[in-house]
Design a protein around this nucleic acid. Structure first.
Lengths: 345, 345
DNA sequence: AATAGTATTGCAAACGTTTTCATCGATCTT
DNA sequence: AAGATCGATGAAAACGTTTGCAATACTATT
């Protein structure tokens, strides 16, 4: 069966094989109720026999949707976005869409290029991570009238529809936890915040909260590390091997916290007795690491799923209503934080 | 600038604005050397002003490539594939292609659906993970004459062009390492091998190697866990809390090994003194974990990059030559393995 | 049996682009 | 200076679909 066609098995080849007109074949796919069961069967058989696969690009030329959604993320590489990509992908797949994925490596210029590239493919919508984007990107989106949304951040006043969490709140929660435990000497490890509003919001909130609590963070206690276990470990090692070390480490996210934890182990420091560590994110594995990582959970799976569902609904709706969904961060206390001075050095 | 066009800014709108024919506009994009600099400038200006974005779907109808490559992976969620996806994506991006991504959750039936879906979008090629696929999938690929390749596995006799590692070899290397260290009581934690030839090959080779070395692995020493730190930790916990425990754990991959390591820490077992642990993969973070994980490196980044480069070259070549590239697994000894009985219980 | 629907199908135009061919000047060649 | 060559441009056909409209064949109604 399924004889090797010379190549171009199109709708008219099917029509010919089924001895009907191309129109009827098209209708069999798009409005099956308009074609008699008998003809439908003939056509289905011909489709089977010839191994016909619909050409969505050709459909698209008739104002039909392309059935694709573009997603542009900073990076695919880390646990951070893997979960949200997976959930988003699954959700749009359920709605019959396919994912076009691109990454820009935390470079807003490249983000623009990627969005543009996706638009050349006439995606039905484009989802971006975060709310901070280059002006060119915003202009492009507005101009092309392509539905767009932001994932990961929530802001009441956001221009774009969004599904995400309030990263300021997350930062505040982490800081408050440490303060409540009596920590006064806190080390901070955050990634570069340029072009990364998630990290920036968290850091700002942390700093504000600490200041409000009367906790000063001298420059020597601030460290920068990209989202990588390896570099985070290095940064933490530097912080911890200084003559006086902080009693707690507040990390920009769980990947960094993981690195910090390994650094502590390497230094032979007891966590949480000698050093408290808190992350933000609650990624896969954060619960299992020993001791279990205290963190502020940003529900990536939920965000991805919700984003996918809302966005596809938005795209297919007759009169789309913008949406803004806030997923509450949740404070997860596990084993890496304890009262300050429970066993000071 | 960039006035909001009613919507349809197409090539003829540009042509009208530049007072030339659509043909000339098209040529400006595709064969710039055929059009005079003066006209070119006029057209470029019109494109700018109207915010025109090329429509690749429409191009595609003229036998041009769609400029997309489909990648179907078992899951996006884990570190395992995140790295290879990122590298592949970057590589094809450099060649001017865009990634269509789909995942099937280790279900070969769904894999078929996904490949089909991608073909409806007329991807210029489709890359699959592993060499084991449903017959329907193979038939579809052959029938549509869509370039296809396999990533992650290498096999001399593979039908599809492939870039990957010999997973049997990787399994053997891991087993040999343990045997060489004198381990005779070895616990195995592997994922379900159905529809997962990577894991199956590794496991088979491990079993063969151990048998050849006269090491028997009773059923009670074999445990199944999906690729998740959490479930792997559970499985390892079960294995380690039995009345007599193995002196070493050989894990199907690094994610599982990570879980096993945490389980050991939880049990208060000294690694590697009381328990050796070895993984396969060498994922991000495996080097940083304390103690550093001994593993067999499968160079995911290299594989992804090479796969992307080879595949795009293959697709764009005038007369494509199939390729089969073997990336050698590398034995990485870190801190989680030691001589058996160095401090037996 | 004639009329009015109704269900099914086909024809042809349309979608946005590329490309072949033809046209029109202008520049060489001798 | 006539013909040949060349460079730049436009006209129109083609790609694989969908869809509005028209045509046809039934069925139900009177």
């Amino acid at each position: 069966m399924a004889p090797k066609q010379k190549g171009n098995v199109d709708i008219v080849a099917v029509a010919k094989a089924a001895k009907v007109s191309p129109s009827t074949v098209s209708r069999t796919f798009n409005h099956p109720n308009l074609v008699s069961p008998a003809t439908r069967k003939k056509i289905t058989r011909a489709v089977q026999k010839l191994g016909y696969v619909r050409n969505r690009a050709a459909q698209m030329m008739h104002g039909k949707r392309s059935g694709t959604i573009g997603l542009v993320v900073p990076t695919i590489n880390h646990a951070i976005f893997a979960e949200v990509i997976q959930a988003f992908s699954d959700a749009i797949d359920r709605a019959g869409f396919t994912l076009l994925l691109a990454s820009h490596g935390y470079d807003l210029e490249r983000e623009y290029e990627m969005v543009r590239k996706l638009m050349e493919h006439r995606v039905d919508g484009v989802a971006l991570i975060g709310l901070e984007h280059s002006q060119a990107t915003s202009r492009l989106i507005a101009q092309q009238e392509t539905p767009a949304m932001a994932i990961w951040n929530y802001a009441e006043e956001s221009e774009l529809p969004c599904v995400g969490a309030d990263n300021r709140l997350a930062g505040r929660m982490a800081a408050e936890h440490l303060v409540a435990l009596g920590h006064r000497d806190i080390g901070l490890i955050f990634p570069d915040t340029r072009g990364n509003d998630r990290a920036r919001h968290r850091l700002e909130a942390v700093l504000e909260t600490l200041e409000a609590a009367g906790v000063a963070v001298p420059e020597g206690r601030k460290s920068e590390a990209p989202y990588s276990v390896s570099q985070a470990k290095q940064a933490a090692l530097a912080l911890l091997s200084a003559p006086s070390r902080p009693s707690a480490l507040l990390c920009g996210n769980d990947v960094i916290a993981q690195g910090a934890l390994y650094a502590a182990q390497r230094c032979g420091l007891q966590v949480p007795e000698q050093l408290s560590v808190i992350g933000i994110g609650d990624f896969k594995g954060s619960a299992e690491i020993e001791p279990g990582l205290t963190t502020v959970r940003i529900p990536a799976g939920t965000i991805g799923t919700l984003a996918g569902e809302q966005f596809t609904a938005f795209i297919t709706a007759d009169e789309p209503a913008p949406f803004r969904i806030c997923c509450e961060p949740e404070h997860i206390v596990r084993g890496t934080t304890a009262l300050a001075g429970s066993k000071t050095n």
